[in-house]
Nucleic acid binder design. Structure first.
Length: 415
DNA sequence: CCATGCGCTGAC
DNA sequence: GTCAGCGCATGG
């Protein structure tokens, strides 16, 4: 398959479609009724109920209206004359030391000069150890792993597009009753105080999405700010990330249900087999680790992973083409695309392939997933003023000899 | 109910 | 730097 992405009509909003109420039991698993887990809470005037924690009645969700959403708005792309000056200034001030153009995936040296990521790597690989502008030394650490300067990315993008007012629509009229008793930040119970935030409990959940909501978090589910969770939004830690709904589990890297699908994944560098290329990456399933001794995690593989539980959730999302939210942590130490600090929401991806292989550790099998970005908003590391467009699938070397492969075989779940 | 989970902290 | 091990949230 040369191109896995169907050509979407230009300007078609591709976001926030909930899966069908009763997923067809293609996998043989019993379909779960979403409403069983979740009941819409009564309006504020109604008497409160302590549980369940989230309302999960699946309503038809409003189509997302994003920055680069509608065809009508696209017509205006060329009238940004007022921004030319800004772009000029940015171009002069921040241009790539190597190619002299506006940097693509910019990285910034401590001396304050910028490179495209690719140009920087070329520069380093050609043996250079100093900045091409001021000859200041480039720290070995940066030479080895340059991190994309997301602030500059933002600045360039802001100069490129004249931001249009976002129509917010009506905000959700309900919120979770149980939430009201919780503080704004993570907190520790009396019993857990000794270990501080290590044993913290989540604070309020600020967004009104159901815990099994697929796709982006829209303005209508953000009654506090009315903007939704935007690509690039960054939080201090997993608990804050949870509070804004991007990824609910506190420790686990996959949010999902075996018979329903996966809502989100976290890239934390916890699995050696993970491999990142920004717009696509290879993700490793969970499990296969010995958690005896009251551990929560363990780096060492102790047995094969199989497609049960969370790994099955990812497999189902792959089959159905559901959108999966992705958050990245600064703990992912091997990637230029990871944030410098905190946890960042990077938009929705689809899982195009799923297979298994012997892990890097050499003994046991791990579940593998090919994630490809598919979001209406540009990624935090690019200065593009548009979201993802169809692109060919990457060539995965480890897939050459693999026979047990699942491919996405339904059209992607976009509106 | 029990098992799992790519966190987090203080203590070395 | 390494390490143990806790509450909590979630799935089953």
């Amino acid at each position: 398959m040369a191109c896995a992405w169907p050509a979407l009509p230009r300007g078609t909003p591709r976001a926030s479609r909930s899966p069908p109420l009763s997923p067809t039991p293609r996998t043989g698993a019993a379909p779960r009724t979403p409403t069983a887990l979740a009941t819409l809470l009564p309006p504020p005037s109604a008497p409160s109920r302590p549980t369940p924690p989230f309302p999960t009645k699946r309503r038809a969700r409003r189509r997302q209206k994003l920055l680069v959403g509608s065809a009508a708005e696209d017509e205006n792309e060329n009238d940004a004359a007022g921004n030319d000056d800004v772009l000029d200034i940015i171009g002069k001030t921040f241009s790539c030391v190597f190619c002299m153009k506006l940097p693509d995936r910019p990285v910034t040296t401590p001396c304050g000069h910028n490179f495209c990521l690719k140009c920087f790597e070329k520069w380093i690989h050609s043996g250079k150890k100093t900045c091409g502008t001021c000859c200041a030394e480039i720290p070995p650490k940066m030479a080895q792993l340059p991190r994309i300067n997301s602030a500059l990315v933002e600045a360039i993008r802001a100069a490129k597009v004249s931001r249009k007012a976002i129509s917010t629509g009506s905000s959700a009229q309900y919120h979770y009753i149980w939430n009201n008793d919780r503080p704004n930040k993570a907190y520790t119970t009396e019993r857990a105080k000794r270990a501080g935030n290590a044993n913290a409990s989540s604070g309020q959940i600020f967004v009104t999405i159901a815990p099994d909501h697929f796709g982006p978090i829209l303005a209508e589910n953000d009654p506090h700010r009315n903007i939704g969770v935007r690509v690039g939004e960054t939080w201090e830690d997993r608990l804050q990330c949870r509070q804004w709904g991007a990824h609910f589990p506190h420790i686990a890297g996959i949010a999902g249900q075996a018979t329903y699908g996966a809502q989100s994944v976290a890239l934390f560098g916890g699995y050696q087999d993970d491999e990142d290329h920004g717009e696509w990456f290879l993700y490793t399933g969970s499990g296969g680790r010995d958690l005896s001794g009251n551990k929560r995690t363990n780096k060492e593989q102790a047995f094969d992973q199989d497609f049960m539980k969370l790994n099955a959730a990812l497999r189902l999302s792959c089959l159905r083409g559901y959108p999966v939210r992705v958050v990245w942590s600064h703990k992912e130490k091997r990637s230029s695309h990871a944030p410098e600090s905190g946890v960042r929401y990077d938009g929705v991806y689809r899982i195009e392939r799923r297979w298994r292989k012997i892990g890097i550790q050499g003994k046991f099998k791990v579940c593998r997933y090919l994630f490809v970005r598919c979001d209406n908003e540009p990624a935090p590391w690019t200065s593009d003023d548009h979201g993802d467009r169809p692109r060919p699938l990457p060539n995965i070397a480890e897939l050459q000899d693999e026979t047990d492969i699942t491919e996405r075989n339904e059209r992607p779940s976009w509106d």
